[in-house]
Simulated scan of single mutants.
Amino acid sequence: MRSKLFVPGARPELFDKALASAADALSFDLEDSVPEAGKQAARAAIASFLARADVLASNKLLIVRTNATDSPHFAADLAAMAVPGLWLLNIPKVESAAQVREVAAALEQAEAANGVTRPIGLLLNIETPRGLRLAAELAGAHPRVAGLQLGLGDLFAPNGIARTPANVHAVLFAVKMAATEAGVFACDGAWPDVADAEGFQTEAGLAQALGFIGKSCIHPRQVALANTVFSVAVAEVDEARRIVAAAQAANEEGRGAFLFEGRMIDMPYLRRAQALLAGASQH
């Protein structure tokens, strides 16, 4: 999921354009981009789109961002969006493990009511100070949690924190360590200035260097930037193949750690090479 394109739920005329884009994932939004009076219509539009045969047959990872769990819209969001074909529900402003477990239980009931047989995962937004402090606990709160997503706008702006590379790096590192502890992925949030490609690439580069799988995009023009930053270079893939092959030979000789082109390779480096190959095969 190198690129995750946000699609406003109140703009169904954009749905097919998003499907035709190069984004790896589409995240249909029911929260900030939809006015209060338009929530029900947005749910209906998204549900209708997700039910289409061509959408179900696409190679897109389909995600819906709900309204916050304490909002009057969350129950209706869950009931309408727990449908076959949806991979992830993106839950905003998560702050407690109990909250995650409550969402998981409610989602299971909604799936049963709607005939969903493949369990839908949870993508939790880390966008409050408390959520950041408890990120590892949130990530490990339930087996349905697939990943953590960083929301820097909500985390920084209300608290007077400048969006400098140093501040961004500090939060990215914390979220990645929390995700790694729980064995889930970490996805970077959105860059707000659509015209600032350099800013997008700089922030995406920080996330990529820390092992994030991709970045959220608020406009189709950002998709190509994200795909480029988070794509594994051909040289890296070739080296990973050689490392995996060398590890197999070393294992057959009864060796764990081994020298590879002058470098010592042990299990952490082997796992990294295996992960690179797995990611490359997916793309």
Rank of each mutant, 00 (worst) to 15 (best):
R2D: 01
F6P: 05
V7K: 04
R11Q: 13
P12W: 08
F15A: 13
L19H: 12
A20D: 15
A22Q: 15
D24V: 01
S27G: 07
D29F: 00
D32N: 13
D32I: 12
D32E: 13
G38N: 11
A41T: 13
A41Q: 13
A44C: 12
S48E: 15
S48N: 14
S48L: 06
S48T: 15
F49L: 03
F49M: 06
L50I: 09
R52C: 05
V55A: 14
A57P: 04
S58T: 09
L62A: 02
I63S: 12
N67Y: 02
A68S: 14
D70W: 14
D70P: 01
P72K: 03
P72V: 03
H73W: 15
H73V: 00
F74Q: 00
A76H: 06
A80D: 10
G85R: 07
G85D: 10
G85F: 08
W87I: 00
L88G: 09
L89H: 02
K93F: 14
E95A: 14
S96I: 00
A97N: 01
A97V: 12
E102W: 05
L107Q: 10
A110D: 04
N114D: 09
N114V: 10
G115W: 05
L122A: 04
L124D: 13
L124Y: 13
I126N: 09
I126F: 01
P129L: 11
P129I: 13
R130T: 14
L132D: 11
L134Y: 07
E137C: 03
A139L: 06
A141G: 07
A141I: 00
A141Y: 10
V145K: 05
L148E: 02
G151D: 04
D154H: 11
D154F: 04
L155M: 00
P158L: 01
T164Y: 11
N167F: 01
A170Y: 04
L172I: 12
A174Y: 02
K176M: 15
K176A: 14
A179F: 08
E181P: 00
V184N: 00
A186H: 06
D188I: 11
D196H: 01
A197R: 12
A197D: 14
E198W: 05
E198K: 12
T202F: 11
E203I: 10
E203K: 01
A204V: 06
G205P: 01
G205S: 06
Q208N: 13
K215T: 03
H219V: 08
P220K: 13
R221N: 15
N227A: 10
N227Q: 06
N227L: 08
T228A: 14
V229H: 06
F230H: 08
S231F: 05
V232S: 07
A235L: 07
A235W: 08
A235D: 11
V237Q: 03
I243F: 02
I243H: 01
I243K: 01
A245V: 01
A245Q: 12
A249G: 00
E253H: 01
G256L: 07
G256D: 08
A257R: 00
F258M: 06
F260D: 08
I265Y: 10
M267S: 08
P268E: 07
Y269F: 14
A273G: 04
G279Q: 13
